[in-house]
Design a protein around this nucleic acid. Structure first.
Length: 444
RNA sequence: GGAGAGGUGGCCGAGCGGUUUAAGGCGGCUGUCUUGAAAACAGUUGGGCGAAAGCCCCGGGGGUUCGAAUCCCUCCCUCUCCGCCA
């Protein structure tokens, strides 16, 4: 949510900013509703002041007849107050609903562009591997190795689902643990494990609701929503709170699955594990002092880049232009890594700053150290990273001619020193290193 | 899920229709005193809307009343016991 005062005092600037976003906002309606709301408030508050005075007179009135006549007058007043109050409340609610539909305004320096074609490649890092054999797409490699089972995923959960198996599942688990360790040990984040099923208000806070309900999974019975990203529960951790300035900045990192209802068409765009209804992600979320938020955004980006650097994968930074900016972001830079097999750039991270947009919606504030009015914090977040696409890049980049896949050295300690993913054993009883049987009752 | 108890200011805790425009205590801040600190004493102490006057906020929402923290309805949450359960 942007500041109502800004719309009230500089409507033309707001209109101009929104015009660059390739979207629309009900600015005229907001201005009219705001004027109306303020008029109603002035009127009803004057009446309430009158009633408060009148009530004191009733209390002091000893003569029953005089008392009764005072009460009769006040009853009339009360009816007017009731009517105006209802109207004021309805107007206020309408205004709030309208404000929720206004997108965040782009930060200074965000390039103006009509849509994704206006995005700017800022820099490219690492080098794309040159193969002395034709590299394969990850689905071919993974299926042959037996680390991803597409058919059974679809059987169990419908289209766009897959099952990681054996070293495929282990690779993802190693990546998650390693990423969490990296961000907590080297970048100063505190790990949290949040709920995956949240109240609707949380999604209003982050800006997913009310506009984008069609992209979310919702349980109508309990009225709870599956999170589309850890950003939702983690950003809302401090909602309705007034933090001390000294507590800022707060850095959190969380691993969660993410659930997204997407209208997926068949074909190349959805081949493999690039896009699904469910995927895992390690997410970084920051709560910072407004003065530091630009610097914090740069640091967030560096923290995400570090993951790709350590994995030794080629990547590039993509500055998102105004026309491609999401509803909530003031500025956004994507990290894309190269998929050597399908020869395309894959978005593995979006590092966004929301300034006070989410903080306003979720009412997250801090009290300045010197005292004074609470102010909204700035929130930022970025993936660090999304798992499936990181897996794709690893599998395709580190593939060998014989169909096996090298494991990036930084991950090897997380896989018991293993350095290569070999074909998985066929379905059947797994071999166990030491054949000690489980004793003493069932393991549940 | 069932039965009972309860949700009041940063915390504890009174209040049960009108001196509450929320007592009292603790904590915090400021001052006096002190070399400094403690103690003592005095003052102060949340949020929202509004240019201001003022209005609103006692878990959320609704109602009764001239007037509600106080009465009624409803929802949510916490605690205790029971049931179920990784």
């Amino acid at each position: 949510m942007i500041d109502l005062r800004l719309i009230r005092e500089q409507p033309e600037q707001v209109r101009a900013a929104i015009a660059t976003l390739n979207t629309q906002a009900p600015i005229d309606e907001i201005l009219a509703t705001d004027t109306r709301r303020r008029a109603l408030l002035t009127e009803v508050e004057a009446l309430k002041a009158e009633r408060n005075e009148g009530s004191k007179l009733v209390k002091g009135a000893k003569d029953p007849a005089e008392r009764q006549s005072l009460i009769d007058n006040l009853r009339l007043l009360g009816e007017n107050i009731q009517r105006l109050d209802d109207e004021a409340r309805a107007t206020d609610a309408a205004l709030h609903d309208l404000l929720l539909q206004v997108p965040n305004l782009p930060a200074k320096g965000v390039p103006v562009g009509p849509d994704e074609s206006g995005n700017v490649v800022v820099s490219e890092h690492g080098t794309k591997r040159v193969f002395d054999f034709p590299p394969k797409p990850h689905w071919e490699i993974a299926e042959r190795l037996g680390i991803i089972d597409f058919d059974r995923g679809v059987k169990v959960a419908g289209s766009r689902n897959y099952v990681l198996r054996g070293d495929g599942a282990r690779l993802q688990r190693a990546l998650i643990t390693w990423m969490l360790d990296l961000h907590t040990r080297e970048h100063g984040y505190t790990e949290v494990y949040p709920p995956y099923l949240v109240l609707g208000e949380m999604l209003v806070g982050t800006g997913n609701l009310p506009k984008f309900s069609e992209t979310l999974f919702h349980d109508a019975e309990e009225d709870k929503w599956l999170i589309p990203t850890a950003e939702v529960p983690v950003t809302n951790l401090y909602r309705e709170e007034i933090l001390d300035e000294g507590q800022l900045p707060i850095y959190h990192v969380a691993y969660t699955p993410c659930f997204r209802r997407e209208q997926l068409s068949g074909g190349r765009e959805v081949r493999g594990i690039k896009r699904g209804y469910q995927f895992d992600k390690v997410e970084m979320v920051k709560f910072v002092h407004p003065d530091t938020s630009d610097e914090e955004h740069r640091r967030l980006l560096r923290d995400a880049e570090k993951v790709l650097q350590a994995l030794e994968l080629p990547y590039r930074l993509l500055q998102i232009c105004t026309g491609d900016l999401s509803f909530t972001a003031a500025n956004k830079v994507d990290l894309e890594t190269w998929a050597a097999g399908t020869e395309e750039w894959l978005e593995v991270s979006s590092c966004s700053t929301f300034r006070d947009f989410q903080a306003r919606r979720a009412n997250i504030r801090f009290r300045p150290a010197g005292g004074g009015k609470p102010q909204f914090v700035h929130t930022l977040n970025g993936s660090g990273l999304a798992l499936p696409r990181t897996m794709i890049s690893i599998i395709e980049h580190y593939q060998r001619e014989d169909g096996t896949v090298e494991i990036p050295s930084v991950l090897q300690p997380y896989l018991g020193g293993q350095s290569v993913i070999e074909p998985q054993p066929p379905i059947g009883p797994a071999r166990v290193a030491s054949q000690q049987s489980v004793v003493g009752g069932r393991v549940t």
